[in-house]
Amino acid sequence: MRTSPRTPSIITVTLLGSLLLAGCSATDRGTGASDAAGAISQDSVAQDAADGGPGLVGASVPDEDREVITTGDLTVVAPDPRAAVQAISELVETAGGRVESRAEHAGEDGQAFGSLTVRVPAVKVTATVDALDGIGEVQDVTLDAQDVTATAIDLDARIQALGTSVARLQTLMGEAATTADLLAAEKELTARQAELESLQSQRSSLTDRVDMSTLTIQVLSQDPEVTIRPAGFLGGLAAGWAALLVALNALVVAVGALLPWLVSAMLVLLVVRAALKALRARRPGAAPLAGPEGGASSPGDGGDGGGGDSDESAHLAGSGGRRG
């Protein structure tokens, strides 16, 4: 039997075609995981776009379904701050809340003060603030409400999209034909699960802040009572009497401060006066005089008698001369 020369060419072409088809099939399977992951990402983006964005959806939510975070700062003045801090802690726990921080201090002037940071159910914030009036005088109340409805809706949409993406990747891992496909799907699944857990943690924290409002309370000591004085004539009379008492008090204080100095000055004056008397008693005219013989003699003694007679004779002579 003679073989046709075209038979080897036909067989060769058939073999080459089979090899090309096998290579294309392997390439398609190798890129299947990546294409599926890309499709999932596109589906997530499309889902977010279909939701219309957080702003548009948040604006269409009814008021009763909106999510609001309420925070507040309060000041309570009480006669006993330590007892007031304890009473506020018990009040918060009774309302279903909790005390996150508590501090009590004693001031330099002996007056105590304290501070608390408490979490109260949002539906009981008003009732709790009103109940604080029974513990002390509530002052400087500041309440702030922040609407986070749009943020909550955005987180919910992203969590839902990532949940769908994780489910599809898990299905793809079960259908992977090769190790490369399995590793690619597992890597993408790990990243998506980490992002999903982060968003779920953010949503849980947001829900807690919405459900439980935060209040910061300062507890101060009550100031001493201030006496209100009447106006008019009685007010002037009371003011004058008070000024007189102040002046008398100042005078008494001044006298008390000067009294030791006055006593010391009197003593010095008495000593000086006694010294002056002693000096006057010892004047030269009162001291005894020495006679011609060196003895003591008085002015009337003979020692000075001659001198005295001579003076008297001279005086008489002078008088006689004038008479002649």
Rank of each mutant, 00 (worst) to 15 (best):
M1C: 07
R2Y: 07
S4G: 08
L16Y: 10
L21Y: 04
A22V: 12
G23N: 10
A26R: 12
D28L: 15
T31Q: 12
G32K: 12
G38R: 14
S44A: 11
A50L: 06
G52T: 01
G55F: 13
G58M: 05
A59W: 11
S60K: 11
V61K: 00
V61F: 05
D65R: 11
D65Y: 03
D65V: 00
V68L: 09
T71I: 09
G72S: 14
D73P: 00
D73T: 13
T75M: 11
V77R: 14
A78D: 06
R82Q: 10
A84S: 09
Q86D: 14
V92H: 01
V92L: 04
E93G: 00
S101A: 15
R102L: 03
A106R: 12
G107K: 06
D109C: 04
A112C: 00
A112T: 11
G114E: 04
L116D: 02
K124I: 06
V129W: 04
D130Q: 11
A131K: 12
L132W: 06
L132N: 09
G134P: 00
E137W: 02
D140A: 15
D144M: 10
D144F: 08
D147L: 05
A152L: 06
L155S: 08
L155Q: 14
R158M: 04
Q160C: 00
A161W: 09
L162V: 01
T164R: 13
T164L: 11
S165N: 09
L169Y: 02
Q170I: 02
A185R: 04
E188P: 00
T190M: 11
T190D: 13
S198A: 15
L199S: 10
L199K: 14
L199A: 15
S201P: 00
S201H: 12
R203T: 00
S204W: 00
S205N: 06
S205W: 02
L215K: 06
T216Q: 14
T216A: 15
I217C: 07
P224H: 03
E225W: 02
E225R: 10
V226F: 04
I228N: 06
I228Y: 05
P230S: 07
A231Q: 09
G240E: 14
A242D: 12
L245T: 13
V246S: 09
A247V: 15
L248M: 14
N249C: 09
V255S: 08
G256H: 05
W261H: 10
S264N: 08
A265K: 03
M266F: 02
V271I: 12
R273K: 02
L276H: 04
L276F: 02
L279D: 02
L279H: 01
R282H: 09
G294P: 13
A296H: 10
D301S: 15
G302E: 15
G303R: 04
D304E: 05
D304I: 03
G305M: 14
G306D: 07
G307T: 09
G318A: 14
S319L: 13
G320K: 08
G324E: 11
G324F: 11
